[in-house]
């Protein structure tokens, strides 16, 4: 039950994009097409879950025993950057067409603060390993959900009569704000 609460909370109630406003750069940048948004969301979910898992292990099995907790941000950034590099090399080797298609997303994942946010929050919330895994998975799927909804709305907005001054980033941010308000409705869920 506890795990379900953590999952639902990360997915809907404390959604990383619409509650914490983390990962806004790829959220705005890659949400103009539904298919690109979906790819980005999946790639982020995968990297986020692995990064949180590895970061948790490094923190509790290396930094805590040697009293090096002050290095957590540096080490987590290194873990995320290295993981993205490994994923990039791996995809390039095994599937060149996928690598070509993902080319733009991978650098964006490295600089996605939502991934660092998940790793830091798991330490802050003192989650155990399984809770970390479920939390990261929920956060990643929450990111995917938010970016896919946003992409759907933005595709519809292409046909809307938006005032000239609000076109582009303006209407996107207003939409994100309204979406965040809608997600506030989940607050009383758990």
């Amino acid at each position: 039950m506890e795990l379900l609460v953590i999952f639902i909370s990360a997915l809907l109630i404390n959604n990383f994009v619409l509650h914490y406003f983390l990962g806004i750069c790829p959220f705005i940048g890659v949400s103009n097409r539904l298919d690109s948004a979906f790819s980005m969301g999946l790639a982020v979910t995968f990297v986020m879950t692995i990064a949180a898992t590895v970061s948790w292990l490094i923190y509790y099995l290396l930094l805590v025993p040697y009293h090096l907790e002050f290095l957590e941000i540096v080490s987590f950034i290194l873990v995320i950057a290295s993981l993205v590099q490994v994923v990039e090399m791996f995809i390039k080797k095994v599937s060149p067409p996928l690598y070509q298609a993902l080319g733009i997303y991978l650098p964006l994942i490295t600089t996605n603060c939502a991934i660092l946010g998940v790793a830091l929050l798991t330490v802050l919330k003192k989650y155990n390993f399984i809770e970390t895994l479920i939390f990261a998975l929920g956060a990643g799927l929450g990111f995917t959900l938010a970016i896919v909804i946003m992409a759907g709305i933005r595709e519809e907005l292409e046909f809307a009569d938006v005032p000239e001054t609000l076109k582009g980033a303006g209407i996107t941010l207003i939409t994100a704000g309204i979406l965040a308000l809608a997600f506030m409705g989940f607050s009383g869920l758990v």
């Binding site: 979906f38 790639a43 979910t45 879950t49 599937s95 996928l98 298609a101 993902l102």
Partner: peptide, 13 residues
Amino acid sequence: LNLNLMLLSAAGL
């Protein structure tokens, strides 16, 4: 491409 990416990500997760 998306289908393949989804399969690969889902399998990994």
